[in-house]
């Protein structure tokens, strides 16, 4: 098991290297270091020497990939790419272009993101499973078909509408919660209630429909028929057998998103003014802060790969027949 995990993580290194190359190329094609300097120095009275200084201070005056001025291995190591990439692998994100320490900012902004994504994830999962199970109970009746219709209709509504509508109705018309903002500790609840509610509702349609098919698949299996033939009540069948067995595909399916919860959600955070990693990323994109965006891309990829490994592990835990090799 441990050997397997180590092997998987080693396999992640070339992938992360690839990710780095892609983001690096994308951003330096877009943004010459000169552009970045101008953006950060403002627009009044900027001189060429100020730009040169800014660049040299941040190491952007070096060649991108290959340094002809240096000898031997330094030709590759004394470049922007090398300097930026190696540090990332050591999780040293360095300083953002505006001079703040990125690692520190990420560690601070991770919590507000989690404060939204985690409740959305947990509540959403519980609610959708409950509803899907109830629908599975009524399978074949008009309740089932109506529920599916409602689910498809809910899926067909853009997430933006949920957010705009929710904010307008609950925040502005009913005045039940503050429109936007964030606070730490217990008082955060009033700020989080609405985004969490919207997040849960937004994911309801898709989740319910998906879990319903999983339940129906289980219900049609032989062991369920056997159980029913033994005279077990429908409730017993559903809770005792179907739910337990259906949880395996459901849980192994959601494990992959678990690590990504740290990244927060871009649009919700922007709408509700929540200082999480999602809004951090958007701000970085808008201000073209290359260092932050690369750090976030790297982090995102790492978390994704961790998610994949977790999925594999969760398979072996629920089903001993699967062997890791």
């Amino acid at each position: 098991m441990i050997a397997y995990i180590i092997r998987r993580l080693a396999y992640a290194v070339p992938i992360l290297l690839g990710v780095n190359v892609i983001t690096f190329v994308l951003f330096f094609v877009v943004n010459s270091p000169d552009d970045m300097a101008r953006l950060h120095l403002g627009n009044k009275h900027v001189t060429a020497t100020a730009i040169e200084k800014w660049k040299s201070e941040r190491g952007y005056d070096k060649p991108l990939l290959f340094n002809e001025a240096q000898s031997s291995s330094e030709r590759f190591t004394d470049t922007i790419f090398y300097r930026n990439t190696v540090k990332l692998f050591l999780f040293d994100f360095g300083q953002s272009d505006s001079g703040r320490d990125i690692g520190y900012d990420i560690s601070q902004r991770m919590w507000p993101s989690l404060a939204i994504t985690l409740p959305v994830f947990v509540l959403g999962l519980l609610l959708t499973i409950t509803i899907a199970l109830a629908i599975a109970f009524f399978r074949g009746t008009y309740i089932d078909s109506w529920a599916v219709v409602i689910c498809v209709a809910m899926m067909s509504i853009s997430g933006l509408f949920y957010i705009i509508g929710g904010q307008f109705l609950i925040g502005k018309m009913l005045r039940l919660v503050p429109i936007s903002g964030y606070d730490v500790g217990f008082s955060a609840i009033k700020f989080l209630a609405l985004p969490v509610l919207i997040g849960v509702i937004g994911g309801l349609g898709h989740g319910t429909r998906w879990y319903r098919t999983i339940f129906l698949e289980e219900i049609n299996r032989d062991y369920v028929r056997t159980a029913r033939a033994k005279g077990l009540s429908e409730k017993m069948v559903l809770y005792g057998h179907v739910l337990r067995n259906a949880l395996i595909p459901i849980l192994t399916g959601v494990v992959v998103v678990l690590p990504s919860l740290f990244l927060g959600s871009l649009i919700t955070e922007a709408f509700f003014g929540i200082p999480g990693l999602g809004s951090y990323t958007i701000e970085a994109i808008q201000s073209q802060d290359f260092a932050i965006v690369r750090a976030m891309v790297f982090l995102g990829s790492v978390l994704y790969i961790i998610g994949l490994v977790l999925t594999d592990i969760s398979y072996t835990m629920v089903d001993p027949r699967v062997r890791l090799n």
């Binding site: 992938i15 990710v19 892609i22 983001t23 994308l26 951003f27 094609v29 877009v30 943004n31 990504s260 990244l263 871009l266 990323t281 994109i285 073209q288 965006v293 976030m296 891309v297 995102g300 990829s301 994704y304 790969i305």
Partner: peptide, 15 residues
């Protein structure tokens, strides 16, 4: 696929 989609899209859109 391991790059978060939004970031990849944002980067390409800028380019």
């Amino acid at each position: 696929s391991s790059i978060p989609g939004v970031l990849l899209i944002a980067a390409s859109a800028l380019m």
